[in-house]
Nucleic acid binder design. Structure first.
Length: 708
DNA sequence: GAGCACTGC
């Protein structure tokens, strides 16, 4: 206390004293975290157990503190690092910055982070935060993860595909590393120890073996961190691993239910919003809805209702947020409202984990979520509205108790809650597995169907994806990666069918065009169509559209953006250049976030294909050449027009329609290739180019000659 | 006539 007074007096050294006081506040904050009281206990547990499950709820401080405890306990001796994985990029970045500050170092030194497109680490980095997908990529180069003494998998309860695959892989690495140590003890000869994953004919493993010959690898310590109350699944998977619980810090949230079953939750949600506004104390409202359309309709209804209120009660603003919304508009949820004004945020599940909105005191939860599912038989993805799980309902209500006691209004009766599934079906059980299988195969897993998954995906899904990878020429009949195509495909961080398209294109003189195409296909929708400016947006889109289809249209958009940048490059600095590009995007109804993402992917993948020695050639104006290349690359996704004007998917025989966002929506060519097969209200194919059916017999005879 | 959320050396 006295010292604080002293700091204030030293006016000629304000900056320094501010720093000191910030440092002290940081230190005090660290000491007050629930995890701080168990530091010694925790270290002992890690020393005693190779695998530890840590259950820590929101606010326990586990993500920021535990890596520092381990560092201080000497887990980074011998230059080894502690790796901490996160499912999301923003989390990896913000946590790393926070921990660097707590350690009093620049981020990128002792504490760093690595995410796609951004590596802020150095040779001195000892605590490395990263996305789980990135660690999997790293493992392709270093299958023993030899630079790490400890891997912490954070947010494991979210069960993303990457987390699940990573857990399976880490279990395998851990076994191999322990075996290598034991064997070297037994034989006292490190050179002949069992470091090889039994099959040394793969070049990568041999080189990795050579690298470690003569050095024994210490066992890999694994820490699985989860916020869910149920650690049993993780514990059993890791051979009865010890689970350790850290209390969280969350304010109480009062839960209420409806008395009766609700028929129209939009209506009750709207009523609840206004009940809260008129009857409850100040505090913002967060309502969880299923999608953009629903949000827009409730937004309009709410705005109309506000106008009908007496003037003194009109102090309520409605703010939508969902992922497809341009970033500037997403940021509105963070803008503080004027004093005395309450805001109500209408959100998709983006607000469950990805975006934390401050000031929320009331949560409205209708109990539904739109989720992606995958039908392996048809190879079709669907977006379906499901009831939430219990875990998800808890996650949502928790959003009301971040800053003080809150309330959650569930729009269903209490007995419904007990009928909900305990937890959401893990993603690995409801997605296309082509990427997972290619990656596991590249990591040396021989029989993916028998791989020790935390929870195995449907066998049908595994076989379907294996079949696809065999048809693409990535995996040979013996189940191993083909050489060189399979190895090249595994190295490129894209959907396997896009990686293959790059290889095909390089052989038919149009890699430059295909690189742009797959970059654009890999991001969320490029075009942004606000409801109130539909006509204007459509007119702008026409400027880019190509009669051949969406792929060439996407190339036109990308090249126009690059032309625009090149023209402005001379007169503007980097910041102004990006700003003017955003303006150009807005004028052309293009989502600038998506375009930025596509440019990042483009530059990353260009690096990959250049290192592989693929010639970055262009077909110039010969668009026929490129369309043939599209047919040769996407021969697995063909649809033909039927007499009644609908289309039939060649592979599954399903009746489909061209998605209304396609430039070919009205043109209806006889035969098309497509890149997405999605069921929403109808079965749609998206991203389409017209082709000549005869090309297929010539370009993909192994598939189309047999079937037609 | 239409788009849950994440992510990749």
């Amino acid at each position: 206390m006295e010292r604080q007074g002293l700091n204030v007096k030293v006016s000629n050294n304000d900056c320094k004293s501010e720093n000191i006081s910030r440092k002290r506040k940081l230190a005090e904050h660290r000491k007050s975290l629930p995890v701080a009281s168990v530091e010694n206990l925790l270290i002992q547990e890690v020393l005693r157990n190779d695998t530890l499950i840590i259950v820590g709820e929101t606010g326990s401080g586990k993500t920021t503190q535990i890596p520092q405890f381990l560092f201080n306990a000497g887990f980074c001796r011998d230059g080894k690092a502690i790796g901490v994985t996160q499912p999301r990029r923003v989390a990896a970045v913000t946590v790393a910055k926070r921990v660097a500050e707590e350690c009093g170092v620049e981020v990128g030194q002792k504490v760093g982070y690595s995410i796609r497109f951004e590596d802020v680490t150095s040779s001195s980095t000892r605590i490395k935060y990263m996305t789980d997908g990135l660690l999997l990529r790293e493992a392709l180069l270093d299958p023993y993860l030899s630079r790490y003494s400890v891997i912490i998998v954070d947010e494991a309860h979210e069960r993303t595909v990457h987390t699940d695959v990573l857990l399976g892989f880490l279990k395998k690495v851990q076994k191999t590393r322990s075996r290598s140590l034991n064997d070297s003890f037994n034989t006292e000869n490190v050179n002949t120890n069992g470091l090889v994953l039994k099959k040394g004919n793969n070049g990568k493993y041999v080189s990795s073996l050579r690298q470690h010959r003569g050095r024994k690898l210490p066992p890999l310590k694994l820490i699985i961190m989860s916020a869910s109350l149920d650690a049993r699944l993780f514990s059993e998977y890791f051979g009865g691993a010890r689970a350790f619980r850290i209390p969280g810090r969350q304010y109480p949230v009062a839960i209420s239910y409806t008395r009766k079953h609700v028929l129209d939750y939009s209506e009750t949600t709207l009523i609840t919003i206004f009940q809260i506004h008129l009857e409850e104390s100040p505090g913002d409202i967060l309502a969880f809805l299923t999608g953009q359309e629903e949000i827009e309709s409730i937004e309009n209804l709410a705005k109309e209702t506000i106008q009908k209120l007496p003037e003194s009660k009109r102090n309520l603003v409605v703010i939508p947020i969902y992922s497809a919304l341009p970033s500037e508009q997403q940021l509105r949820v963070f803008a503080p409202t004027p004093p005395g004004v309450r805001k109500v945020i209408l959100a998709t599940n983006i607000a469950e984990t990805s975006v934390t909105i401050p000031g929320i005191k009331y949560v409205i939860d209708p109990g539904f979520v739109k989720a992606r599912t995958y039908d392996p038989n048809k190879g079709m993805e669907s977006l379906i509205v499901f009831p939430t799980s219990k875990a998800q309902a808890l996650q949502r209500s928790g959003r009301a108790g971040r800053e003080g006691p809150g309330k959650c209004f569930r729009q269903y009766p209490e007995d419904m809650f007990y009928k909900l599934e305990d937890s959401t079906k893990p993603e690995i059980k409801r997605c296309n597995l082509s990427n997972v299988i290619l990656q596991l195969t590249a990591l040396g897993v021989d029989n993916v169907a028998e791989f020790d998954f935390l929870e195995a995906p449907p066998r049908q899904a595994i076989f379907k994806s294996l079949e696809q990878l065999i048809l693409l020429g990535a995996i040979a009949n013996d189940g191993k990666l083909s050489d060189p195509v399979g190895h090249q495909m595994a190295r490129i961080p894209l959907d396997p069918i896009y990686s293959k398209a790059l290889i095909v294109a390089s052989q038919s003189n149009c890699l430059e065009e295909m690189l742009i195409t797959v970059s654009m296909l890999s991001v969320e929708s490029i075009f942004y169509h606000p409801r109130e400016k539909q006509e204007e947006a459509r007119a702008k889109m026409k400027c880019f559209s190509s009669p051949e289809g969406d792929h060439l249209t996407l190339i036109n958009v990308y090249r126009s953006a690059v032309d625009f940048l090149n023209k402005k490059k001379l007169e503007l600095n980097k910041d102004k250049l990006e700003k003017s590009l955003r303006k150009w995007c807005k004028e052309n109804f293009i989502n600038s976030r998506s375009l930025r993402h596509a440019r990042d992917i483009h530059s990353q993948i260009r690096g990959h294909v250049e290192r592989m020695g693929l010639p970055l050639n262009s077909c110039g104006d010969d668009m026929l050449q490129f369309c043939r290349c599209l047919a040769g690359s996407f021969f697995l996704n063909v649809a033909t027009k039927q007499p009644d004007g609908t289309y039939r998917d060649f592979a599954s025989g399903e009746v489909v329609q061209i998605h209304p966002s396609s430039v070919l929506f009205r043109k209806k060519p006889d035969c098309v290739i497509f890149n997405e097969f999605v069921q929403t209200n109808n079965k749609y194919i998206r991203n389409i180019t017209k082709i000549d059916r005869l090309w297929l017999l010539e370009l993909a005879p192994h598939y189309h000659a047999l079937k037609s």
